[in-house]
Design a protein around this nucleic acid. Structure first.
Length: 962
RNA sequence: GCGGAUGUGUCGUAAUUGGUAGCCGAGCCAGACUUAGGAUCUGGUGCCGCGAGGCGUGGGGGUUCGAGUCCCUUCAUCCGCACCA
């Protein structure tokens, strides 16, 4: 045996744990560096090889920064509340806390085997009452705060109450307003405020609080029995479980994230996050600027308010469309159209969200009989109802400009409504044209200017007439914060005569109560309603609550008196490097920014962005393996045994290179009399189904037949039809790694077979960190060889450590310093895959030089230690160092060893390399030119042409332009 | 439809500011040592061509002495948002 990774890795993992090598303490004498991984949800299936990818990257960077003299905070914890544990609890009755605990222990065991440098003394678990105590505390702060538009920050609600007591409230025009005040539309005086009952006061304040009870349309999932956030719904079904989701109006706890929309959008500028994440967030916030506009309704007091981004097109309006759910639909509809409208509204409501999405192109609508008046030209225009207008965006009503908007155009064509051209020389006979650059026509005072200019002019006029005003609209909705679930943080609220009150901070945590079952009650109330003497809110917080501030807790994880102490917050500030998957773009990564801004506004933390730099590691996909099962249909089966056919044979069959008869003959030769050949041929009734095979039973697409037969009881005596050489070839496909697809590769197995260092190096070697790629173990031998080669360099045949004290030669030093330089540059730009190659080149060169010198090995062990800490630590130790390699400094590379004395210049003519010339590197441009021109090859390739120009890049290239 | 990203050998990939395309690894081929190991070592391996040479970074065009890299255009794949007014 040579390099024994099992022994070495166990030894050093034990050492690090015993010596708390990675414990971090606040030390103001050192510069800080905070490296954070998105903490995992501890699922029942354990880690797969995809999970550690980001952790390895962040670990390399953390270890590197430590060697560079930084005080590095590199913590880990668990996002422990979540649906799967609860679903499991519902099925088995097992308390989710127990399942979660077990899963966490398994995760920890797996993580420990990979040799991460986490400071486990700072571990957090969101489901721990000592943690969620502070999540609840933050909720209370949100409840006790409002957003002051004047100061543009969150403030304690008392400043608002003060304001009411002194000035009263002027209603919607008051610029301290951020909530949508429908109830207190006309405002109130200071005296009226004082006279309000406490419940009326609270009703008013609810319109301002950052945590409030809102009556909103929610995504209701009947199967899961809970509401879901927008990002938990994909294509009309729940992200988890894939159950249908419907829209439902419910009273819910909400967080007023919309108050922060502008800052969430603008502050994206200042952070180093990938463009795709930023863009996803911009998209999600969906800021659009335009104007509100009120249309009077003929013969009614009602006004229809619309939002438009194109007020310039106001003269092209030929009808209004209301969403079917719009509150004025009923009031406006004339008796003549009442039945038709009711019918249409019912139809639209019953169309599920899913249908509505999949039938986007289907145009439906109904005239209400009502007419509105265009406030700018007094034209009478019909009011329609149509489900292409969404109730949830803007005002739920649009002014339809068929000339400029395709949806309006389609609607107008379908119902034969008029289309007024508003742009000069623009053809709208086949489609609408939304250009802003054409000159306006048929547009009153806007005629003759471009749409771009007209937008400003129109808003000015609209505001002058008092029929609307310039307005910014957001797609972003307030975040629904209540979940009808058990396994989440209880919301620290109780009710006094139906008026919500938050608990006193001293009374926290409000601990999750025991319940007899984890299901909703018979009356449809959330599981918490089952708890005895539970006088609190029965919904719990959503999964993202605990993860919206965990990075702050790590700074001061054991603080009993604050969510984070001032000293710790001031020192650690924010995350310098955040690593995690891109799938949280519009969920976690938006909420964590929201909470950070809020806590910043209240003065608890010094930064208003959580993370300076974000790297999204790519997803590692699984390579699924398939076996092909022969399914005889409508056929007399004489054998009930399952039959599997090797892929190549199937492929032949499918591509009809062999006939059904040949296939069956093949089957029959293996199991005579398997089925009635004639009947099969008569009906041509044969089908092949694909089944996922556990990838651990497959090597290079070749199936372990015995293992496969043992895998499932029903396969024990399955008939396997192989290729002629007796091999069964599986099919393969790249899919998401998941238990149900049996394509999960566990890091444990890799560690077991090759060692943790090898796993770390290989995961990095696989390609750029940010790129998604399928897992493929085939190439791992190269990395494994590298470690063994390094080991062998410093061990003799008897596996005894043998190192020479001789002075290193120039060539050896060159190799070393080249490597240090490259590795340092690679780490700084997160190009970990290229440094693995660099190490390989280094060891190859040292092997060629037969170099086993201490002077080379010592620094090499240090620069290798972020990547392969165990083997580096062992070598470092063998060299006689008492302290751990992690306590040392990253070596400095020295230019002097890298200087070449000569360089082989490629000499090219018009960019085509014709010959090469070796010259001293120290030559300046003139000298190089002289040498090139006087070289014997020159005339041969110049071929009588005139030299126009010579371009020389010293140390690079010589190009002659002819 | 809008937005983001990616296209390089058989495969994973590499290539400072535009400067010898294909580093490193896998696979494959040949050889050595050995005799059957999933070991180690050496050499070869983009395509066409006997060769000189030519062609090559998804396709087409452009800028340049010179383009994987910059610009325009187009195609393909992946991801996000989507009847957002």
């Amino acid at each position: 045996m040579e390099y024994n990774f099992r022994e070495i890795e166990a030894k050093w993992q034990h050492y690090w744990r015993e010596h708390k090598s990675y414990k971090t303490v606040l030390d103001t004498s050192l510069p800080k560096f905070y490296v954070l991984d998105m903490f995992p949800y501890p699922s029942g299936s354990g880690l797969h090889v995809g999970h550690p990818l980001g952790y390895i990257g962040s670990d390399i960077f953390s270890r590197y920064k430590r060697l560079k003299g930084f005080n590095v905070l590199h913590p880990m914890g668990y996002d422990a509340f979540g649906l799967p544990a609860e679903q499991y609890a519902i099925q088995t009755g097992q308390h989710p806390a127990i399942t979660t605990e077990q899963n966490i222990n398994r995760y920890r065991e797996q993580l420990d085997k990979i040799g991460f440098s986490f400071d486990w003394d700072r571990e957090v678990r969101t489901s721990d009452p000592q943690y969620y105590k502070w999540t609840q505390w933050i909720f209370i702060q949100l409840f006790n705060s409002w957003y002051n538009k004047k100061t543009n920050k969150a403030e304690n609600i008392s400043t608002l109450i003060n304001c009411f007591e002194i000035n009263g409230f002027k209603g919607t025009s008051d610029d301290i307003l951020t909530g949508d005040l429908e109830i207190y539309h006309d405002g109130f005086t200071a005296q009226e405020w004082k006279d309000f009952s406490s419940s009326t006061k609270e009703n008013v304040l609810q319109q301002f609080r950052l945590a409030y009870m809102g009556d909103t349309m929610v995504n209701w999932c009947p199967q899961l029995g809970t509401v879901l956030a927008n990002e938990e719904v994909k294509d009309g079904v729940s992200e988890r479980g894939g159950y249908p989701v419907e829209r439902k109006r419910m009273s819910q706890w909400c967080l007023r994230i919309t108050a922060f929309a502008d800052r969430l959008l603008n502050d994206l500028e200042g952070i180093e996050w990938s463009e795709s994440i930023k863009e996803a967030q911009r998209n999600w916030i969906g800021r659009s600027e335009g104007s509100s506009l009120k249309f009077k309704v003929q013969g009614s007091n009602a006004e229809i308010e619309v939002f438009t981004t194109r007020p310039d097109t106001i003269f092209g309006v030929t009808f209004l469309t209301l969403a079917p759910e719009h509150e004025l639909v009923n009031e406006l509809t004339t008796d003549e159209y009442r039945n038709a409208v009711n019918e249409y509204v019912t139809y639209a409501r019953n169309r599920s969200e899913r249908e509505r999405m999949s039938e986007v192109k289907r145009i439906t609508g109904q005239f209400t009989g009502a007419y509105a008046i265009n406030p700018l030209n007094g034209e009478k225009i019909p009011v329609w109802v149509g489900d292409y207008v969404l109730a949830g965006y803007g005002t739920g009503a649009v002014m339809a400009v068929p000339a400029g908007d395709q949806r309006d155009w389609d609607f107008a064509k379908h119902f034969n409504l008029p289309i007024i051209p508003i742009n000069k020389d623009v053809d709208i006979s086949e489609a609408a044209d939304a250009t802003k650059d054409a000159l306006m026509i048929n547009s009153g005072f806007l005629n003759g200017i471009t749409g771009r200019e007209a937008i400003k002019a129109a808003i000015k006029e609209i505001e002058k007439l008092g029929v609307g005003k310039g307005k910014t609209n957001y797609r972003l909705r307030d975040a629904i914060f209540g979940r009808q679930r058990y396994w989440g943080e209880p919301i620290p609220v109780y009710y006094n005569d139906g008026v919500p009150c938050v608990m006193k901070e001293e009374a926290l945590p409000l601990v999750l109560p025991e319940v007899d079952k984890f299901l909703p009650t018979e009356t449809g109330e959330p599981p918490l309603a089952r708890a005895k003497d539970w006088n609190y809110e029965t919904t719990t917080m959503p999964g993202w609550a605990g993860s919206s501030w965990y990075y702050l807790r790590y700074m001061d994880a054991n603080n009993k008196s604050a969510f984070v102490g001032k000293e710790a917050a001031d020192y650690w500030q924010d995350v310098d490097l955040y690593l995690g998957g891109a799938e949280h773009a519009t969920g976690h990564l938006l909420y964590v920014r929201f909470w950070t801004k809020f806590l910043f506004d209240l003065g608890y933390i010094p930064k208003q962005e959580p993370a300076k730099k974000l790297i999204n590691q790519g997803m590692i996909q699984g390579v699924s393996a398939f076996a092909y099962r022969l399914l005889p249909l409508k056929v007399v089966i004489t054998s009930a045994r399952p039959v599997f056919i090797s892929k190549e044979i199937v492929a032949d069959y499918v591509s009809q290179k062999i006939t059904t008869q040949q296939l069956l003959e093949k089957v029959n030769s293996k199991i005579p009399g398997y089925c009635n050949l004639e009947d099969i041929l008569k009906d041509n009734a044969i089908a092949i189904s694909q089944i996922h095979v556990d990838v651990n039973l497959v090597d290079n697409n070749i199936l372990d037949i015995k293992g496969f037969q043992k895998w499932r009881e029903e396969f024990v005596d399955a008939v396997i039809i192989t290729e002629d050489d007796g091999k069964y070839i599986c099919g393969s496909e790249v899919e998401k790694m998941s238990k149900s697809k049996h394509n999960v590769v566990s890091p444990d197995k890799i560690v077991e077979d090759y060692g943790a260092d090898c796993l770390r190096l290989y995961e990095m070697f696989l390609g750029p960190l940010e790129q998604s790629k399928p897992w493929n173990t085939n190439g791992i031998s190269g990395v494994s060889n590298f470690i063994r080669k390094l080991w062998r360099l410093y061990h003799n045949k008897q596996n005894e450590f043998e190192v020479s004290g001789e002075v290193a030669t120039a060539a050896e030093l060159k190799t070393l310093h080249k490597t240090i330089k490259k590795v340092e540059e690679d780490i700084e730009r997160f190009s970990f895959n290229t440094s693995v190659s660099t190490f390989m080149i280094c060891v190859n060169e040292l092997t060629d030089l037969k170099c086993n010198k201490r002077a080379i090995l010592e620094p090499l062990a240090v620069i290798l230690s972020p990547y392969a800490p165990h083997v580096a630590e062992e070598l470092w130790n063998l060299l006689g160092n008492k302290e751990s390699v992690t306590k040392t400094q990253f070596p400095k590379w020295n230019q002097q060893y890298l200087v070449e004395d000569s360089f082989e210049y490629p000499v090219s003519f018009n960019g085509k390399v014709r010959f090469k010339l070796t010259m001293p590197l120290q030559l300046n441009k003139e000298e190089i030119e002289k040498q090139v021109i006087s070289s014997p090859e020159m005339s041969k390739f110049l071929n009588g042409d005139q030299i126009k120009k010579i371009i020389i890049v010293p140390g690079r290239i010589v190009n002659i332009v002819i």
